[in-house]
Computed example of a mutant assay.
Amino acid sequence: MQTYEVGRAVAERYGLSVYDSMIVAAALIAGCNTLWTEDMQDGHVVEGRLRIVNPFA
């Protein structure tokens, strides 16, 4: 339930798709600092603590 609530808030605040926001929410809840993905904006920082990094950039 927490992932869903955080994910919906992330989707609204950052304009991410529901699926991407659930991935970001899970990373935030897990305490990650970096999320490696090629599907989101490289260098974007979510909630001031989770950096999105494209490994192919």
Results as ranks from 00 to 15, higher is better:
S17V: 08
L50P: 06
M22Q: 14
Q2R: 15
N54C: 05
I23L: 11
E38K: 02
T37I: 04
D20A: 12
M22D: 10
Q2P: 10
D42F: 05
D39P: 05
A11Y: 08
E12Y: 13
L28C: 03
I29P: 06
L35T: 02
G7V: 10
Y14G: 14
M1E: 04
D42Q: 08
A9V: 06
V53R: 12
F56E: 09
R51Y: 00
S17D: 07
A25F: 03
A25Q: 05
C32F: 12
C32D: 07
H44G: 00
I23G: 00
Y19V: 05
L16K: 02
Y19S: 15
G7Q: 13
V45E: 06
G15E: 08
G31W: 04
N33A: 11
R8E: 14
A30Q: 05
R51C: 06
L28D: 01
D39E: 14
T34Q: 12
A57E: 02
Q2W: 11
G7R: 11
M1H: 14
I52S: 08
Q2A: 13
D39A: 14
T37H: 01
P55T: 09
A9S: 14
V6Q: 09
I29Q: 09
T3K: 14
G43K: 09
W36Q: 08
V53T: 10
V46P: 06
R49K: 13
A27E: 03
Q41P: 01
E47M: 06
I23F: 12
M40Q: 03
R13S: 13
L16H: 15
T34G: 06
R49S: 09
A11E: 11
D20I: 02
G48T: 09
